[in-house]
Design a protein around this nucleic acid. Sequence first.
DNA 1: GGCAATTGCTTCAGGCCTCAAGGAAAGTCT
DNA 2: AGACTTTCCTTGAGGCCTGAAGCAATTGCC
Lengths: 161, 161
Amino acid sequence: MDLELVASDAQEGKKQELKLWLRLLATTKLMSQEIRRRLRREFGATLPQFDLLAQLYREKDGLRLGELSSRTMVTNGNVTGLVERLEADGTIIRERLPDDKRVTVARLSDKGRTYFEGMAEAHERWIREMMAEVEPAVLTRLLAEVGQVKESAQRHLSEED
Amino acid sequence: MDLELVASDAQEGKKQELKLWLRLLATTKLMSQEIRRRLRREFGATLPQFDLLAQLYREKDGLRLGELSSRTMVTNGNVTGLVERLEADGTIIRERLPDDKRVTVARLSDKGRTYFEGMAEAHERWIREMMAEVEPAVLTRLLAEVGQVKESAQRHLSEED
DNA sequence: GGCAATTGCTTCAGGCCTCAAGGAAAGTCT
DNA sequence: AGACTTTCCTTGAGGCCTGAAGCAATTGCC
């Protein structure tokens, strides 16, 4: 009986990691597709744009592109394009630093600031809606335990520097 | 003292959903970037391709593109391109149904089958490695609780049909 | 000072992704 | 049968994404 329990647990426990990974992936895919759709419909924005703007929102003086790149986990080349498009429609402003002419700093325009505030408010509401059926206690535990997964993953990347 | 506890809990509890969402997003982004890098380096494949092949692997007779699309949560238009590229390098085979000439069925070639088996084995090992520092009991609980999040989100999409 | 290495951004090719519009086959209705 | 609708896939425009190569400014070393 003990043996059976152990055995069935071993069976059950098999590939837990893989199952969890697939579920994490499916869940975030599902949710971000929904967020994407709504951002697009109601604000004409994309998720990466929203993410980038969120970083700039809390830094009144703006951020250099490299910093933006690492905070949003997006490659340098990609940030260039994102910033270009956002500058084109007047949401952000880009300027070179006079003391180091290699670096470019991006910051929100006034228009961009109000624009983002509207989006952020809606965005938070959508997330709360989607997680409405999950108990607060579960949310709290998830926050901590997903944190553990992240930490663990972080320590097992190819070339950690 | 009770009041304080409640009050601080309310403070703490504020925006739990948003925080959890951001953490989920960051975690899967981190992990999938790593998986992507390794798939590319060691197999010259991409994550969406791997995902698509995984679906075909368990269906010996292949799948119609529409079915593939919904299983991989990828739009129809996108599946077309993915399948085209995979067929071009001989991993899968695409053929029209004789009885209904609208539908296309994709299935693994023999070469594709062995190719995928190698990838799948490595992929599972990578995932286990990355989650190595998370206790089995936590994994099990996460599996269930992330499932709750997914269910909740699923019930709060825009146009549910 | 002069030159090599580094840093910060941009460019490019190839692939992923979505939405919207389109075309062709099959099913439906009169 | 002929026309309408639905189903299944493809096409195309626009944007995201990565890795690699390139260019310019700055730093460090002799």
